[in-house]
Design a binder for these strands. Structure first.
Lengths: 145, 145
DNA sequence: TCCTTTTAAATTGTGTGCTATTTATAAAGA
DNA sequence: TCTTTATAAATAGCACACAATTTAAAAGGA
């Protein structure tokens, strides 16, 4: 019989394994990211810029689900490492344009092997990984409402 | 045709939706947790104690995937709110025993409605939720190796 | 018993991540 | 045009989260 407080148990929540999984997988990235002197947040920021080359902070934040309060210090650190450039948009000075540097492009080469190394830490079948991927994006969509 | 750097795109990673989903769902808890003066980390700590009544920091950390560096300040705040007690184990003074107070028990009543409110933020079917749950715990198991 | 090793928490320092506020710029309206 | 409103970043303050170190206590071995 289901008891009054069962829903309050850790093992009956969907949020907890999500929270724990995200933390643990980010931890797995650490040794690989250390080698290229990036944190996980810096890494996902670079991933967007490796793909899109340039973007303002607001749009970047929409991709990453982060706001300027988090991004500003991250971007300043990436700029200090010469992986990105930060400059005001001449058309609209409110916008800060973030763009990748040559050094940032070169970093992509060094990062190219990371996704494969991480995939070895998780033993999901191709079908399971696709299922998880689909369910996570469906959930993310619901949560963004 | 698959390109050399495709694996480095945000949308081809499993970690990113995991990371984003975890953040967004924790954000959904915030208004409800604000009402009972708990942060998410404090809430999952209380969940373990509502269930188990008492436990040392190390064991608590194994349940929550957190270490003493994170837990010590969290536990001090919960003690300041009179939801828990912290006391050294008489048998082995290295262990700190964390136990729930009457006030902590009373908080359970106020928290009882939260899981149901959160479930309305995510529109997964019962089957999808179970699938996601299973895949997350499978992944968490792999990552803990 | 005394010394070494191990273990559990606490501490330190860095980096997010969030809310709320502030600053600067642009847009909109009387 | 002048004022009000809206928008984009930056800033401030708080709370994790983690790695590395320190402290205190217990266990194990010569």
């Amino acid at each position: 019989m289901t008891k009054k407080y069962d829903a309050l148990k850790l093992e009956n929540q969907i949020c907890f394994p999500l929270y724990a999984c995200a933390k643990e997988i980010v931890r797995k990235y650490k040794p690989f990211l250390d080698e290229i002197d990036l944190t996980y947040t810096q890494y996902i920021t670079m991933m967007v810029l490796w793909d899109k080359k340039q973007m303002n902070v607001k749009t970047l934040g929409e991709y990453l689900y982060l706001d300027s309060g988090t991004l500003t210090p991250v971007l300043k650190k990436l700029e200090a490492k010469n992986f990105i450039r930060r400059s005001r948009d001449k058309e609209d000075e409110r916008n800060l344009c973030v763009s990748i540097t040559d050094e940032g492009e070169m970093l992509k080469e060094k990062a190219a092997g990371i996704p494969d190394k991480i995939s070895h830490c998780v033993n999901l079948t191709k079908e399971e990984a696709e299922q998880l991927y689909t369910l996570l994006y469906k959930t993310l969509g619901d949560l963004s409402q």
